[in-house]
């Protein structure tokens, strides 16, 4: 467990986080862009059309990755909230608050693409079904965390309030996941499961896997890039930030 403690203490230190997150941002963005380009081209032109849905099925290559990242991002945000509440870590608070805007964007994207896909498939832009409603609640939670973050003068009070909301909202995550099994729904069940082979042929899910990896890498890159700028702002009075500014190194 020694390596874990060392890892934790290093990343909890703002100058270390700032330096390492710069490398990770570049690396993840370097992965994300080719994956997203290849996945888009593959999904839009080379993957076979669905025998029932035709070409509208190609929306899956955005819809599913966005929805997966939206939910994983929420779990990451709530975990950062827990770490921030228990250990009062500035880095955790910064990560929590910077998860929210990109998580909200991903949730919006999942809802918007789902709506566009719903029209030719179900004949409706929107249905108040459990999966869709719980995703709308996820969007509200993200927006709530963003709103709370800017509603307080005091950074620590804002961080605590956001963390508590993020933690309470975790209850929504299993509701999203099991909504298609617990209630009658138009929505199709999960495409990827850890324990089973996907129900769709490999020609269809291989580009989806590429897009999912691309979306995760993109989320990681943007989260780290946002967080490190925010961290500089909060640490602006510290010696390490002042010397970076003086050296024109930011």
């Amino acid at each position: 467990m020694g390596w874990l403690a060392t890892w934790y203490h290093r990343w909890a230190s703002p100058p270390w986080f700032y330096q390492m997150s710069g490398r990770w941002t570049r690396g993840l963005m370097g992965l994300a862009l080719p994956l997203l380009c290849v996945g888009t081209l593959w999904g839009l032109a080379f993957a076979p059309a669905d025998y029932q849905q035709g070409n509208s099925f190609r929306i899956i290559y955005i819809h599913v990755p966005a929805a997966m990242v939206a939910q994983s991002g929420y779990i990451l945000m709530a975990s950062a909230g827990l770490v921030g509440l228990v250990w009062r870590l500035k880095v955790a608070d910064v990560v929590l608050r910077n998860c929210a805007p990109i998580g909200a964007a991903m949730t919006f994207l999942a809802l918007a693409t789902g709506s566009i896909w719903g029209k030719p498939t179900w004949g409706a832009w929107w249905v108040w079904d459990a999966r869709i409603t719980s995703m709308l609640v996820l969007l509200m939670l993200y927006l709530g965390v963003m709103g709370l973050g800017s509603a307080f003068r005091n950074e620590q009070a804002a961080g605590r309030a956001s963390a508590i909301l993020a933690l309470v909202g975790v209850v929504n995550i299993p509701i999203i996941k099991y909504s298609v099994e617990w209630w009658y729904s138009l929505h199709q069940p999960a495409t990827f499961r850890l324990t089973e082979k996907p129900a769709m042929p490999v020609e269809m899910w291989a580009p989806l896997l590429v897009m999912v990896l691309g979306f995760y890498a993109f989320f990681g890159a943007v989260l780290l890039a946002r967080s490190r700028v925010d961290l500089l702002d909060r640490e602006r009075r510290s010696r390490w930030v002042r010397s970076l500014v003086a050296e024109h190194a930011i």
Binding site: L44, A49, G54, N55, S56, R58, I59, I62, H63, A112, T113, I116, W117, K119, P120
Partner: peptide, 11 residues
Amino acid sequence: MGGHGGYVFAA
């Protein structure tokens, strides 16, 4: 896209 082009490209 077999009539679905508007939906797919909008998404």
